[in-house]
Design a protein around this nucleic acid. Structure first.
Lengths: 342, 342
DNA sequence: TCCAGGACAGACAACGTTGTCCCCAGTACA
DNA sequence: TGTACTGGGGACAACGTTGTCTGTCCTGGA
């Protein structure tokens, strides 16, 4: 039982027409009050505001937007998996920027499915979002070319697009990995295992390339201890580690291409009580609690999300500027704890 | 330089009127084709589709929605912090349900700010989202009463609302904590430290209440080793742990109210090489890598998000059913590794 | 007293789409 | 041949708001 002041129809939302009728003014005056236009006589404005409160009026922004044109105050963010902290951090940072522009974020996960990625982009375009941030998974983003030509701000993150030109914000995967492998080499390691997952992924290809650069510099045969796994389950990474350690010439150091691989490696090494030197791409909050020392490549994920969102709003202001390509720097950081008292 | 087939105005998006003109049919026929109405002659439909492709037509769903009424195929999710894995997992699970209904999620973080929470809710209502999922932070959600009365599906997660009646999906904080403390008691611990953060938080109050229940059952003075910290920085939790351990009667077991507190406690204990028994609310992926054994209260965050979203769509179908109150069960799980070889 | 000009309210059209209705052609049947 | 029916296309209004323009009232100066 609602005790609302009875409007014309309890289920229906009141419109400006209802407010105008209740306040005894014209529709347009209600619109003026709702938009804070100053040239409304104080007593009328007062009556309108009272009527609004009485009826519980809320402007329909869908309609307002349709009439007044160009902005829905919404930007679309398409990522691979929102449950992954890497992407959720990006989303949070982008949302923080959007908040400054009174804009909301529609976030959708493509789940590594190129068809879905495309569907999501087109859906968001039909919703007339003001801009798009896309972490691409497919190797063809040409479907966005027409949108971009029409002025839709589009920013690609983590991987560059194929088949269209757009702003990008990438992580310096190659340099980060190269520096990390150099560190291992400087420590005297010569047999360095490298574990990646699918090389369909731009970022993983770049990391592998960075590792190869460092190894070649040192005159070490590339690919000697290279293992690729085909899932993102840490357990499979553990198996790969086990196979390497059981080989006739086991590596003395291991580079894990991402933090899920690291997770599997740590577990496997702990199981074996093996002290092989560990290093990995990706820093994460709990890394400092790992039971063994690990050197990781860190980078500021928030910066990535922030830059991407700022690029969207920048392009919204100046649509026809040349594409910008930002690279988020990486750094090395030592994590983990000594496993046993020194 | 675009090589698009020139429309009337390169910047403007083509509308159904443009398509109709290009295809030599009426606007309404274009609408019919766009909506897959079967009673369109095949050759006309073909011409319309060709014209659409030619012009790169994309329906404006904002306008379609305004005319045809009730659904924006969007639901709003208001959480405390998207960067927190707890909430991003919920968001991902809710989005997965939404996907089944061809609906997108607008996700916004209130950042523990009750004013912003309210602003966000009202903003989303003005955007005419089809439903809301809210993790409340303030202690007054009465502003949503009018919306709910008008038929807006609203589901509260993690904490119940105050001042209005709505569906809820909560975690069984109390039972989970009680069972965990019982476990510690069964192990023989009598001096059990309890560390929480702000008790303004419903969940933390419930966890504390669960701990108190278990202690009272065992005839142990409640609050003897209770410490409250006032930030979510793990470092402060570490300080609290240090203070307890340095007291004249240090606890032999510690319960951490959430995983951030646990993080601080683990660091502090590792620093001191202290073997105090650890337990905590919240499981998380890397918990298994903690350098010491920890028993945690786990629960399925995905279930929480899934149930919340399903409730929204359920209520969308049957608006006037009684509020549902779901409780996600908890379970105990042992995590972490032995710190040193046995 | 008259007129110019400013302040402000309201009528009307428009945004891009869909719902409703009507009309026309074609067909079947008496 | 006339009527009833049906399939299908189009004209028009409508969704709820804002942009544009017009009209009215009031004030002040000559």
């Amino acid at each position: 039982m609602t005790d609302q002041a009875a409007g014309p129809d309890p289920g229906r939302r009141p419109t400006m027409v209802d407010v105008a009728r209740a306040a005894g003014v014209s529709l347009k005056t209600v619109s003026r009050v709702a938009n804070g236009v100053p040239t409304v006589r104080a007593d009328l404005a007062e009556r309108v505001r009272d009527a609004m409160a009485e009826l519980g009026f809320q402007r329909n922004n869908v309609a307002a937007n349709l009439r007044s044109g160009r902005t829905t105050a919404t930007i679309g963010l398409i990522i691979l998996d929102l449950a992954n902290p890497f992407y959720s951090t990006i989303a949070a940072a982008a949302a923080a920027v959007a908040e400054r522009f009174d804009t909301q974020l529609i976030t959708a996960s493509s789940g590594w499915d190129a068809v879905r990625e495309r569907e999501l982009v087109l859906d968001l375009c039909e919703r007339r979002v003001d801009g798009l941030i896309v972490a691409p998974t497919g190797d063809d983003q040409s479907y966005l070319g027409a949108e971009i030509a029409r002025g839709m701000p589009a920013v690609f993150i983590d991987s560059p697009p194929s088949g269209c030109l757009a702003d990008t914000v990438l992580i310096d995967n190659r340099t980060g990995t190269r520096d990390l492998i150099r560190r291992l080499l400087a420590e005297g390691h010569r047999e360095i295992g490298v574990i990646t997952d699918s090389l369909n992924d731009f970022t993983m290809r770049e990391r592998l390339a960075g590792a190869a650069e460092a190894l070649e510099e040192a005159g070490i045969e590339t690919g000697r201890h290279f293992r690729r796994i085909y899932s993102d389950r840490p357990h499979d990474a553990g198996d790969a580690v086990g196979a390497m350690l059981d080989s006739s010439e086991p590596p003395t150091a291991l580079f894990c291409g991402n933090n899920r691989i690291l997770l599997g490696a740590v577990e496997e090494l702990a199981r074996r009580r093996d002290r092989t030197r560990l290093a990995a791409f990706d820093d994460f909050e709990f890394a400092k609690l790992l039971p063994r020392p690990v050197t990781v490549v860190g980078y500021d994920t928030r910066t990535l999300g922030r830059l991407a969102a700022e690029l969207v709003f920048q392009r919204l202001r100046r649509p026809r500027s040349a594409p910008a390509n930002y690279v988020v720097p990486t750094y090395l950081v030592d994590r983990g704890m000594a496993a046993d008292p020194a």
